[in-house]
Design a protein around this nucleic acid. Structure first.
Lengths: 136, 136
DNA sequence: ATAATTGCAAATGCTTTGCTTGTGA
DNA sequence: TCACAAGCAAAGCATTTGCAATTAT
């Protein structure tokens, strides 16, 4: 259901347009991390007239509202996902581009510790693992 | 001394031009992580005619030769440093842009473990901490 | 000598923006 | 109604590239 994201929009005072509903719907049905172009392609199947500029604007709007999360993985194009309830990091298959989400509390704690050791409050972080499948 | 980098070029069969020597020299005297534009500015003081295209080409060449390391921190512009002998990660001050290098073996090990847990060989990783100074 | 490199400007790829028309609350 | 959003094309930015002139080996 996209009512999920639509609810969030109402809460945040984000005006609900047809296009925004579509971006929300398509993203909520995507299990992966599409870039804007891919997202636009998927949405175009439901509304062939939607402009990619609108997708760019919406995706940015949703990100600023905390509804989407943006990732700048290697590759040059920003990729998005619905903001997850619990934080996670990413393991990226360098051969297929497939993305695996993972959580590791030990690493999280160590990161915080490192920052504090240097007199910093950890505000954000980026952890990406790039690997290739071990064939057995 | 830039003879350091120049030696590496000879070893790798990279032809040494005036411009490349300058890129090497300026980078070896930079303690920070300049982007291409900043690097070009610094080099221009020694050779006011060097083209930014050449700096782009050289920086990429050196990266492919393993002489420089490229980082895509938040901010949109790639930043470079001389490839360090031992690997390190970065803690970035979100207010000043200052970068602190750190090494944490525990995190390194855990990353490898995570990748293996999912059946992957860890080939590369990106770990960036973003923080703000704790005032005391 | 001659294959590789430079400088310049034009081209690229992703993303943003100005402007006019359309639309949700 | 009317402030805000969409669509389109043009603009922006970082980076790359084609080509003629120059240079390192």
């Amino acid at each position: 259901m996209s009512s999920n994201i639509e609810k969030l929009c109402l809460e945040k005072g984000v005006r609900l347009t047809e296009q925004r509903k579509l971006v929300a719907k398509v993203m909520s049905e995507s299990g992966d991390h599409p870039d804007v172009d891919e997202l636009h392609k998927r949405i175009s199947k439901l509304d062939s007239k939607i402009s990619i500029a609108t997708v760019y604007r919406t995706v940015k709007l949703f990100e600023e509202a905390g509804i989407f999360s943006k990732h700048d993985f290697k590759g040059g194009k920003a990729r998005y996902e619905q903001s997850p309830k619990e934080h996670h990091d990413h393991l990226i298959d360098i051969n297929t581009g497939e993305i695996i989400e993972f959580v590791n509390e030990d690493i999280e704690k160590l990161q915080k510790k490192v920052a504090e050791k240097f007199g910093y409050k950890l505000v954000d972080h980026r952890l990406e693992l790039y690997g290739s499948k071990i064939k057995k």
